[in-house]
């Protein structure tokens, strides 16, 4: 019987002392961000949506090969000999015409491996994180700007299927 009341007493005491510790926080300022109105400043290395500066992309397919989830699809074809040479901004000759460069951001695991594989640093991860859509297919971003000249059957595809 005595133990019973002692337990109750100790229970109350422990709550009071805990409340005293927790109570100090009543006077600290609030840290809540009113999200759509206020936004958090992201650090510059933030890894969010991928972006490809397609003018600089040489179509080498290194990114697609290094991607663990295979969410990048690159399709290229050789430029003809008679065509005027095209260069990326760092001077690398663009020998291949990239006519498909799709990234499925719904499959991407945001690991960033593709950005390190890219020889011309044209594939980067931006700080953009507000891109929810209603349809999953809208998460496939098409970056390629050029159209293929040859029939699709002659084109090279990276990574090779199978």
């Amino acid at each position: 019987m005595l133990t019973y009341f002692r337990n109750i007493g100790q229970g109350i005491m422990t709550i009071v002392s805990s409340m005293a510790i927790a109570g100090r926080h009543l006077f600290t300022p609030s840290v809540t961000l009113q999200y759509p109105k206020e936004k958090w400043l992201l650090p510059e290395r933030s890894r969010m949506r991928l972006m490809n500066k397609i003018e600089d992309c040489i179509g080498c397919g290194q990114c697609a090969r290094s991607c663990p989830t295979e969410c990048i699809l690159v399709k290229t074809e050789k430029r003809g000999k008679e065509e005027a040479p095209v260069f990326a901004s760092d001077g690398t000759a663009k020998k291949l015409r990239t006519y498909v460069f799709d990234i499925d951001m719904a499959l991407c695991c945001y690991c960033g491996l593709c950005t390190f594989a890219c020889p011309t640093q044209c594939l980067i991860m931006t700080g953009e994180y507000e891109y929810s859509v209603y349809d999953k297919d809208e998460h496939i971003y098409h970056f390629a700007a050029e159209k293929p000249l040859t029939v699709a059957g002659e084109s090279r595809q990276n990574p090779p299927e199978g």
Binding site: L42, P43, R45, S46, R47, C111, G112, F116
Partner: peptide, 21 residues
């Protein structure tokens, strides 16, 4: 972690032979 690797939870920070950044 976010400042260093760019991700808050799933970092991919340790690389074979080194670190990402």
């Amino acid at each position: 972690f976010e400042e260093t690797s760019g991700a808050r939870l799933l970092y991919n920070y340790n690389w074979i032979g080194g670190l990402m950044h």
